[in-house]
Amino acid sequence: MSLVNYIYLSAILFTIGGATVLLRRNAIIVFMGVELMLNAANLAFVTFARMHGSLEGQVIALFVMVVAAAEVVVGLAIIIMIFRSRRSASIDNVNLLKA
């Protein structure tokens, strides 16, 4: 199978993740969309590494995983903080700040 199909797959995953962020209302699900986008980028990195025959892309994928894990730690903490204050994790309910 041609490697370029993996690039198409990663673009599709990225788009699904972006649509999830824009369309879903639960903060946890929105955050899952962001993680999907990061992992789509990882798939692209690994595939391009294979195409170029260099290891750099694979190392980068490991870096991205670590960064994504750190982001999860901070993100879940913030979402739980909001949930405990408001008994809801819906991003439609956080509307106190307005012009």
């Binding site: 690039i7 990663s10 990225f14 993740g17 972006g18 962020v21 903060a27 929105v30 955050f31 962001v34 986008m37 990061l38 789509a40 980028a41 990882n42 692209a44 990195f45 595939t47 391009f48 590494a49 195409m51 170029h52 750099e56 892309g57 980068i60 991205v64 982001e71 901070v74 993100g75 913030i78 979402i79 903080m81 909001i82 991003i91 956080v94 106190l96 700040l97």
Partner: peptide, 26 residues
């Protein structure tokens, strides 16, 4: 609320940055 909004949008934007970096690597 400010923290949540900043976080979700910031993470969204950094995902765009990363995918762009992946394409430039390609």
């Amino acid at each position: 609320e400010a923290s949540l909004k900043y976080f979700l949008l910031g993470a969204f934007a950094s995902a765009f940055f990363l995918f762009g970096a992946a394409l430039l690597y390609g």
